[in-house]
Design a protein around this nucleic acid. Structure first.
Lengths: 233, 233
DNA sequence: GAGTGGTCTAGACCACGGT
DNA sequence: CCGTGGTCTAGACCACTCC
């Protein structure tokens, strides 16, 4: 007798995935409807629904009312990148975290920043420059702009003892995150802070966060070229 | 009377999220059980379940049997990085894609690769070096190793007209992807291929893919320093 | 052992969007 | 229009884990 008692949504997912992979259902195929599959698998429609919905979330299938469920032509895969606070990132490795504020200024948002974050013409920001150390070795130089229209309380914070990242996490909710990765040369600015040669490479991450469509902050984080950023499992 | 007819799982999610953000339920709080919330929201337990399950998937809550649902202490956020084929990536910008094979060799896996991919002692691989162009400008240099134990058919493919990425997508299913981002200097090797100065920075992505725990391939992709990698929405 | 989340069911109504 | 997926319900049983 078969070992399977009854088809659960995991079984259904696996079977569908197999049929997609072995071309039983080639790219672009319109799958049978939920009722038909429920009959085939001998389970409720809700079970089929959950299986197909998750596969759609994972980018394998495309679902449309009336049109039905199709196998996606481009099996677009995604990998997740964790967005932790620098502190957590460093402490997770077992190293000791140290923070240091380099400068703090309140100023009108420069044009490039206004354009980047879609800010109002006369938007004000707090501009911070900070250093993060792991076991006293330079780990990250942070250039950060906080939008005062969205985060007015940033005016009253000196950021001398707490990093803007940790402060924002405890202070502000956020709805969207956008990251941009790139490589650059250290140059004299970063070289001094990161304790590397000016002609050495640096790894940069620009992190932009939003709350319901309003820009909260933009951070440009620069690491020594030896830095590696891995995707989360 | 209220405009809401009844609480849907989206409403429930939103309300829970609000209570977490405004500290009605501070970090670490154990939320009421599903039955209690179902009573409060006047909906079925399944509706509450879906709302909380999705919030757990998004990293806001932590759910454990018997222990209940708690507000996660570290609001770990994630951003998604798309993993397209180079071809799709380039063609999506409207540019013309061109592929060129630089070299192809069948060889025993070098030690570092065996260690990296947990390969058997005498594992054989196909090592490819290729170039990808966007509108005839160098876009990416690709160093790729394909594990023959997992993908034996790679032996019969010359890769002269089709890139390893496109070929693998159509040929092999895969279950896991791991990415590592870093910055480096072009050096003489990459400089020639990417048409940049040897002392200029390059952006590197190492992509490692697996099929049920067996390594399929490792690709080290190098872009000119001007390259930008954005997270998907 | 008992309580919590995990999953399934059978049936229902609704909303969208091709035809 | 009307079929397909989207969502909800009320009830049920199960699995895990803390006490």
């Amino acid at each position: 007798m078969s070992t399977a008692r009854r088809a659960g949504y995991r079984d259904v997912k696996q079977t569908i995935l197999t049929r997609v992979r072995d071309k039983t259902w080639p790219l672009g195929t319109v799958l049978p409807g939920e009722v038909a599959l429920a009959a085939e698998f001998g389970c409720a429609r809700a079970t089929i629904n959950r299986a197909m919905r998750e596969l759609a979330d994972e980018g394998v299938l495309d679902r449309k009312r009336r049109a039905g469920t199709t196998v996606l032509a481009s099996p677009l895969r995604h990998a997740k990148v964790a967005v932790p606070s620098v502190r957590a990132e460093i402490e997770a490795t077992g190293a000791t975290y140290r923070y240091s504020l380099v400068s703090r200024a309140e100023q009108p948002a420069p044009d490039w920043l206004r354009a980047r974050l879609s800010l109002a013409p006369k938007a004000e920001v707090v501009h911070l420059r900070c250093m993060h150390y792991a076991d006293n070795a330079p780990y990250q130089f942070e250039d950060r702009w906080i939008v005062l229209d969205t985060v007015p309380t940033a005016l009253n914070e000196s950021f001398e003892t707490i990093g803007p990242n940790d402060w924002l996490i405890s202070e502000m909710p956020l709805t969207d995150i956008e990251l941009v990765f790139s490589a650059a040369l250290a140059g004299t600015d970063y070289a001094a802070f990161l304790d590397v040669a000016p002609e050495s490479p640096v790894f940069q991450v620009e992190r932009c966060t939003w709350l319901n469509g309003n820009a909260v902050t933009l951070a440009r984080m620069t690491h020594p070229g030896s830095h590696r950023l891995r995707t989360a499992l």
